[in-house]
Nucleic acid binder design. Structure first.
Length: 490
RNA sequence: CGGGGUGUAGCGUAGCCCGGUAUCGCGCCACGUUCGGGACGUGGAGGUCGUAGGUUCAAAUCCUGCCACCCCGACCA
C-alpha cells in the first residue's frame, strides 16, 4: 500500500482515484457508476453527518423520511424541474419477475407493467411538496423545517468515486414559509451553516455566492452555493441552498390562509450537501504520501504504535500505552493502540500515514527508559520526542493546531491561485494555469456560454460580500459593475 | 450516444504480429531469522486466458458475434 502511487504532479486525476481506493474509502461496485463506500470511508461520512445533523437541529430543523419512488406525474408538474433532471432519471416500469417460458432464465414479467412509472428520486422536491399540501392550511402551520438523509440517483454518463456517482448519499432540507422574506432568510442561513461546516470541520475555505441564471437549480429562483478550490486549481461546488419562490407550491397547489385571512401560495427553500464532500476532503488536503484528514473528521485521531522485540518489552510498553490511551479517551480523543504482532512498526507507520491519521505516537524501549514518546504529525511530517507528563493535553493542542494548519494551508493555496484578469488573453492564460479568475462579466447568459465553449470555464458564482467595481466585460467589453469568479470545475 | 483502446491468479502484467507445457512482480499461506520508517531466506497454494461460436490435429494467440471496463466529446451535487 502506498507503493506505486502516482504523485499529484504526475497525474492528479489518477492520484485521486488511487488514493480513494487504496486508503480504503470506497471502490467501484459491480453496478455501473455506483460505488461501495468502505468502512473507513463511511466512518468519515458518519462524522460529517453527525456534525451537520446537529447544526441542522440547532437551527430548528427536524429529520423525516420520504419515498425513494416518485410517480412520473408528480415529477412533471414543475416544468423547469423536469427539464433539468429528465435526462438522468432511472425509471421503474415493472413490479415482478418470472421464469422465461423457454427456460432461458428470469425475465421481467410483461404482465406486471406499472400503471404509472415510478422515478427513482434524483431529488425530492416533488414528492415532498405533494406531501406538504396536506400539512399546510394556515400560517399557523408554518414554517415547516424538515431535513432528510437519503440516497438519490442521477444517471450520470461519466462517474468518479465520490465526485460523481450514479447513486449518492446526501441530505436535503425542504422548508416551507409564509413569506418570501422568511424563505430567503432560511436560504441564506443554511448557506452560512454549510460555509461554517466547510471551514471549521472540513478545514476547506469556501466562497459564498449566488449562481448565474444558467447554473441555477432546476426550479429555483436563486441558487446560492459554496465554492471550494482543489489542489489542481479546479473548483468544486461543495453545497447549495436554493430559494424556490412559490414555484413548487404553485405546481402542487400548496396554499395557506395568512394572518389577513387571504389565501397565498407557500414559499419554499431546499438545500443539500452530498458524499461529494468526501471527494472535496480528499482533494483539498491530501498529499503524495496519502490521505491527510482534519482531526475533526478523522475516524482515528491518534494511533499508538509499540516498538519491541520481546514479550516483556511489549508488556511494559502496553502498560504505558494503556495509560496514555485512557487519558486521551477521557478527553474525547479517538485513539487506536495497534499492538498487532503480525505487522512491523515501519509497515504500521506507512499504513497510518497513508490513511491520514493526524497524530502517531510511537513507544519503544528507549522511551521507556526516558519517560518519553515519539509524536509525529501527519500534516507536516514533523516528529518530536515528548515527555509523557501532560501528554494528553499536548496531544489535544496538537490536534487543534493540525486542524487550523490544514485550513490555513488550503486558504493560502486558494489565495495564491486566485487572480484578477482584465483582458481575455490574460483570462485564458490564468485559466490554463489553474485557479479562480475574478473577471468582469456583462451579465448575459450568451457571454457566459461563449466563454464556457471557448475555455471550458464556468461562472462558479457571483460572490457575496464583495464590493462593487466598475469595469468592462472581459469577453464582450460591455460595462459591468462587479467581478465574478470563473474556473474550470468538477 | 459518436471516436479510440483494453480484457490473462486478489492486484499489476509478459506472451498474441509468427497457433504447440501460461511469464514475472506484488499480495497470500507455512517455517526460521528479524522488528526505532513499508525486512530477508526457504518452501507452498492460487488460472473455465471476459464470453459464445467458428477455423485447426492443436487457440490466450487467427476469424465473427456479444458483454464489460478505460480514455476523449455532449450532460452533471
Amino acid at each position: 500500500m502506498g507503493k506505486d502511487f502516482p504523485t499529484r504532479e504526475e497525474n492528479y486525476s489518477q492520484w485521486y482515484n488511487d488514493l480513494v481506493v487504496k486508503a480504503d474509502l470506497a471502490e467501484n461496485s459491480a453496478v455501473r457508476g455506483c460505488m461501495v463506500i468502505k468502512p473507513y470511508g463511511y466512518a468519515i461520512w458518519e462524522k460529517m453527518q453527525s456534525i451537520l445533523d446537529k447544526m441542522f437541529k440547532d437551527t430548528g430543523h427536524s429529520n423525516a423520511y420520504f419515498p425513494l419512488f416518485i410517480p412520473k406525474s408528480f415529477f412533471t408538474k414543475e416544468a423547469s424541474h423536469v427539464e433539468g433532471f429528465a435526462k438522468e432519471c432511472a425509471v421503474v416500469t415493472h413490479y415482478r419477475l418470472k421464469n422465461a417460458e423457454d427456460g432461458s432464465g428470469i425475465i421481467v414479467d410483461p404482465e406486471a407493467k406499472l400503471e404509472e412509472e415510478l422515478i427513482i428520486r434524483p431529488t425530492s422536491e416533488t414528492i415532498i411538496w405533494n406531501t406538504y399540501r396536506g400539512w399546510i392550511q394556515s400560517y399557523r402551520d408554518l414554517p415547516i423545517l424538515v431535513n432528510q438523509w437519503a440516497n438519490v440517483v442521477r444517471w450520470e454518463m461519466r462517474t468518479r468515486l465520490f465526485l460523481r456517482t450514479a447513486e449518492f448519499l446526501w441530505q436535503e432540507g425542504h422548508t416551507a414559509h409564509g413569506t418570501d422574506k422568511e424563505a430567503v432568510e432560511e436560504t441564506l442561513r443554511m448557506l452560512d451553516v454549510y460555509a461554517d461546516f466547510a471551514e471549521k470541520t472540513l478545514a476547506i475555505p469556501v466562497i459564498k455566492g449566488v449562481k448565474t441564471a444558467n447554473e441555477r437549480f432546476a426550479g429555483a429562483l436563486d441558487t446560492y452555493c459554496i465554492e471550494a478550490m482543489m489542489q489542481d486549481g479546479k473548483a468544486l461546488q461543495a453545497g447549495t441552498s436554493h430559494f424556490l419562490g412559490q414555484n413548487f407550491a404553485k405546481a402542487f397547489d400548496v396554499k395557506f390562509t395568512n394572518r389577513e385571512g387571504r389565501q397565498d401560495y407557500v414559499w419554499a427553500t431546499s438545500w443539500g450537501v452530498s458524499t461529494r464532500l468526501m471527494g472535496a476532503l480528499v482533494m483539498a488536503h491530501s498529499d503524495d504520501d496519502g490521505l491527510v484528514l482534519p482531526p475533526k473528521l478523522a475516524p482515528i485521531q491518534v494511533v499508538i504504535v509499540p516498538i519491541y522485540k520481546t514479550d516483556e518489552q511489549l508488556a511494559a510498553i502496553s502498560a504505558v500505552a494503556d495509560k496514555i490511551q485512557a487519558e486521551l479517551k477521557a478527553k474525547g480523543v479517538s485513539v487506536k493502540y495497534d499492538d498487532r504482532d503480525t505487522q512491523k512498526p515501519g509497515w504500521k507507520f506507512s499504513e497510518y500515514e497513508f490513511k491520514g491519521v493526524p497524530v502517531r505516537i510511537a513507544i519503544g524501549p528507549r522511551d521507556l527508559e526516558n519517560g518519553t514518546v515519539e509524536v509525529a504529525r501527519r500534516d507536516t511530517k514533523e516528529k518530536s520526542v515528548m515527555h509523557i507528563t501532560d501528554l494528553s493535553i499536548k496531544v489535544e493542542h496538537l490536534l487543534e493546531q493540525i486542524q487550523s494548519n490544514l485550513y490555513n494551508k488550503a486558504l493560502n493555496f486558494r489565495d495564491t491561485h486566485t487572480y484578477k484578469a482584465d483582458t481575455y488573453d490574460e483570462f485564458k492564460q490564468r485559466l490554463d494555469e489553474g485557479g479562480f479568475v475574478m473577471a468582469h462579466w456583462d451579465g448575459t447568459t450568451e457571454t457566459e456560454l461563449k466563454i464556457k465553449e471557448e475555455t471550458k470555464a464556468t461562472i462558479r458564482c457571483i460572490p457575496m460580500n464583495q464590493k462593487a467595481e466598475e469595469g468592462k466585460c472581459v469577453f464582450s467589453g460591455k460595462p459591468s459593475t462587479r467581478r465574478v469568479i470563473f474556473a474550470r470545475a468538477y
